[in-house]
C-alpha cells in the first residue's frame, strides 16, 4: 500500500521536473532567439523551398529541419515562434487569472448582486462555443498579439471565476473566517488576508493550466489565419501551412506540432503536478 503510493508520487515528480525543464528551455529559446536561431526566420528563398530535414536525401544541411514552401528555415521559425507563444501564455494567462479569480472571489465571498451578475455572465459564457467566440472576437477587433490576448481574457475568465467562486463560498462558510470578522477585520481585508491565501494554490494550478490553453488558442487562431500576420513566425501558422502541404512536406507540420504538443503537455503536467503537491491544502 505505502510503497505503491510513493511510487506514484515519484513518477509524478519526474513528470513535474521534465515539464519544468522543457518550459525553462523554451523561455531561454525565446529570450536568446536571435543568437540561437541559425537563420533569419523571415528570409525567403524560393529556390530552396520545401527542403527536407537534414537526414533525408536531398536535404541542405544548413536547414536542419528543412524549409517551408517559401524557403524559410523551419527550425528558426520554431525558435522565434516561442516568443509569441510564451508571450501569449504568460500575459494572457496572468490577466485572465487576475480578472477571473478577482470576480470569482468577489462573487463567492460577497454574494448578493455581484454574485447574481457574475453567475449570469458565467452561464451565458458557458453557452458559447469558446473557439467560435474567440474567432468572432478576433474578427471584430482585428488580428494581432494584443487582440489575441484580449480574446483569451474575455473568453477564459470564467474558468477561474467558476472555480474560485465556489471555493470562496465554501471557505467563507468556515469558522476561521467568522473569527477573523469577529476580531474586527473588515470584509475586504478578510477576503484578501483570509480567503485569498487559502485559494491561492488552486489559482496557481489554474494559472498553469490556463497558460497551456492560451498557447493552444493562439495556435488555433493562427491556424484559421486570424492570429498575427501570416509572415510572423507562429507555431499555429506553421501548422496551418503544414496541414495544406502535408503530402509534399510533412516536416513543415511535424516539427512545430511536436513543439506545440510538448509545450501544452508540459503546462498541463506542471499544473497537475502542482495540484498533487498542494493536495493536502486542496482537500
Amino acid at each position: 500500500m505505502a510503497d505503491g503510493r510513493s511510487q506514484v508520487r515519484r513518477r509524478a515528480g519526474v513528470r513535474l521536473w521534465l515539464s519544468a525543464i522543457w518550459l525553462l528551455l523554451l523561455i531561454l529559446l525565446a529570450i536568446f532567439a536571435p543568437h540561437i536561431a541559425p537563420k533569419d526566420p523571415l528570409e525567403q528563398d524560393l529556390f530552396s523551398g520545401r527542403l527536407p530535414p537534414f537526414w533525408v536525401h536531398g536535404a541542405d544541411k544548413s536547414f536542419l529541419l528543412g524549409t517551408d514552401s517559401l524557403g524559410r528555415d523551419v527550425l528558426s521559425r520554431i525558435i522565434f515562434g516561442t516568443r509569441i507563444a510564451l508571450a501569449v501564455a504568460f500575459i494572457s494567462g496572468t490577466l485572465t487569472c487576475i480578472i477571473g479569480a478577482g470576480l470569482g472571489l468577489l462573487a463567492g465571498f460577497y454574494r448578493g448582486w455581484v454574485d447574481v451578475l457574475v453567475s449570469r455572465f458565467i452561464d451565458i459564457w458557458m453557452a458559447f462555443p469558446p473557439v467560435l467566440f474567440s474567432i468572432l472576437l478576433i474578427a471584430v477587433i482585428g488580428p494581432g498579439l494584443f487582440s489575441i490576448i484580449l480574446a483569451i481574457v474575455v473568453i477564459d475568465w470564467t474558468r477561474f471565476a467558476r472555480v474560485i467562486r465556489a471555493e470562496a463560498m465554501s471557505q467563507g462558510a468556515m469558522d476561521y473566517v467568522a473569527s477573523a470578522r469577529v476580531a474586527g477585520r473588515g470584509k475586504f481585508g478578510t477576503m484578501l488576508r483570509e480567503i485569498l491565501p487559502n485559494v491561492l494554490p488552486i489559482i496557481v494550478v489554474l494559472l498553469t493550466l490556463e497558460m497551456g490553453i492560451a498557447v493552444i488558442v493562439e495556435a488555433i487562431l493562427s491556424f484559421v489565419n486570424l492570429s498575427i500576420s501570416t509572415d510572423d513566425p507562429t507555431w499555429g501558422g506553421m501548422i496551418s501551412e503544414g496541414r495544406t502541404s502535408i503530402h509534399q512536406a510533412w516536416w513543415v507540420l511535424v516539427f512545430p506540432l511536436i513543439t506545440l504538443f510538448l509545450t501544452v503537455l508540459s503546462f498541463s503536467q506542471l499544473g497537475e503536478g502542482l495540484k498533487d503537491r498542494f493536495d493536502p491544502v486542496l482537500r
Partner: peptide
C-alpha cells in the same frame, strides 16, 4: 488518461492526421 487529458482535441486531430492520414 493523464496524457489524453493534457492535450486538447485540436492537437489530437493533427496527430491523427499525421499518423492515420499520412
Amino acid at each position: 488518461n493523464g496524457m489524453a487529458l493534457s492535450v486538447p482535441d485540436f492537437l489530437w486531430g493533427l496527430v491523427l492526421i499525421l499518423v492515420f492520414g499520412v
